[in-house]
Write a protein that binds this DNA or RNA. Structure first.
Lengths: 206, 206
DNA sequence: TAGATTGTTAATCGATTAACAATC
DNA sequence: TAGATTGTTAATCGATTAACAATC
C-alpha cells in the first residue's frame, strides 16, 4: 500500500465495490473484470482499475480480479478487517432505524451504544441496546473502545453532541442532523442529510 | 438564469446555503457576505460567489447578499418555490423515520403517499399517512401529482420498486437501499446509503 | 474618500477517461 | 498463438482557488 494521498471520491467508491463483490461471492462467482464491475455499478472501467491500483496490483492481466481476494484487500484498505465499534446519539425515529442496520453491517462494524439527552428515553431498549443518558457517554465509549459516532439529534443539539464526541476521543462522525458541524481537523465528519439531499433532487425536475 | 450546465457539486451546495440563510433570516440578520457564509459552512468564499454567480448577480459589491432576496432566488433555482409531492415505498423503520421529516421540509416538499409491498402493512398509519399496497401506486401518484420517489425497501426489492416508479412517470428517485439501481437517463437517482457512508468513514481511522 | 465585497478571469489543482504496452 | 484484461501514462475534462477591477 503506497503512501499517497487518496482522494475522497476514491474512498467513497470502495464500499460500493465491496458490496457488489460480496454479492458476487454469494453467487459463487470467482472472477470479475473492471468491465463487468463498471457496467453493474455505472462506472467507467478505467476508473475502477485506477482506484484499485492506488492500493496495489490486485488483478491478473487477461483474467480480471479474483473476487475473494479483492474482497479481502478492500476490507483491509477500509480497515474493515477488524471490528469497529460505533455509538449513536439521538434515540428518535431515525436513530432507531439506523440501529436496525446492525445486522446488515455484518461483523465489521456495529452500533454498540445509544445515548439520548432526554432522561425519559434512558432505559428504553432498541434492538438489544439500552439507551443511556449523556452523562454515561465518556465512560461507556472508553470502556467499549468506540471510535465512530453517529448524530441523529435535532439540528440545534448537533454541535453540542459533536463537541462531546470530540472530547471523548471519537475519531470520525457521521452527522444526520441538518446543520454543518465543526470539529477539529483530526476528526473526520461526513454529513448525511436527508433534507438537503431531497432539495438538490428537486433541481433536476423539469 | 443562464443556460449553462451546472455541476452536481454546485447543486448539492445550494440547499446548504439555503438552510443557513433561513437560520439567518430567523435571527433577523439582513445581509451576509460570502466571507461569513464560507466561514460558517466551511467553504471557500470564492466558491460560494462563483456558485451563486452561475445563476445571476444576487449580491451588492461592498455590501454582500441580502438574505431574504438570496433565499428567494435559491428557492427558485431549486424549484422549491412551488410545492413538490414525494412518495415513499417501504414502510419499515427508516421509511417511518423519514416521514417524520415532513414538518422539517416546510411547505416546499412533502411526502404525500407511502406504499409497502407487504399486505399486512397496508392500512397502517404513519404521521397522518395511510400505508397503501403497491397496486394503488399508479393511480395515487398520478392523482397526487407525485414527481419524486423515495426507496426504503430492502436491497433485493429496490430495483423492482425503481422500475415501478419509472413506469409511473416519477422524475427523480432518492434510494436508501444498499444497492446501485438503474433507471433510464431522464430519471435522476441519488443514492443515500448509510452503510457505505459508514464504511468509507472507517478508512479515515488511524 | 476609504473600506468592503462582489463578479469574473486566470491559475491551479484534481479527477476522469482514453489509449496502449505488458502479460495472463 | 489469439483474445482478454490489467496497470499505467498521457490527454482531457472539470472544479476549486486566487487575484483583482468594478463598485457600493
Amino acid at each position: 500500500m503506497k503512501t499517497q494521498k487518496i482522494s475522497e471520491a476514491v474512498v467513497r467508491r470502495l464500499p460500493i465495490y465491496l458490496r457488489f463483490l460480496n454479492d458476487l461471492a454469494m453467487k459463487n462467482i470467482m472472477t470479475v473484470s473492471s468491465q463487468d464491475l463498471g457496467q453493474k455499478l455505472d462506472l467507467n472501467p478505467a476508473q475502477i482499475r485506477k482506484d484499485l491500483a492506488y492500493f496495489g496490483e490486485f488483478g491478473k492481466k487477461g483474467i480480471g480480479y479474483d473476487v475473494a481476494y479483492l474482497i479481502e484487500k478492500i476490507r483491509q484498505i477500509l480497515k474493515l478487517d477488524r471490528h469497529i465499534s460505533v455509538a449513536l446519539v439521538g434515540a428518535g425515529n431515525l436513530g432507531r432505524a439506523l440501529c436496525n442496520y446492525n445486522t446488515y453491517l455484518r461483523n465489521d462494524m456495529k452500533i454498540v451504544a445509544v445515548f439520548d439527552a432526554m432522561p425519559s428515553k434512558a432505559g428504553e431498549t432498541i434492538n438489544n441496546l439500552t439507551v443511556q443518558p449523556m452523562q454515561e457517554m465518556k465512560a461507556t465509549l472508553s470502556q467499549l473502545g468506540v471510535r465512530i459516532g453517529i448524530i441523529t439529534v435535532p439540528a440545534m443539539e448537533a454541535q453540542n453532541v459533536a463537541n462531546q464526541f470530540v472530547s471523548c476521543g471519537i475519531e470520525a462522525i457521521l452527522n444526520f442532523a441538518p446543520v454543518v458541524i465543526k470539529v477539529p481537523p483530526e476528526v473526520r465528519v461526513h454529513h448525511a442529510d436527508f433534507t438537503t439531499e431531497l432539495q438538490s433532487l428537486a433541481y433536476y425536475l423539469d
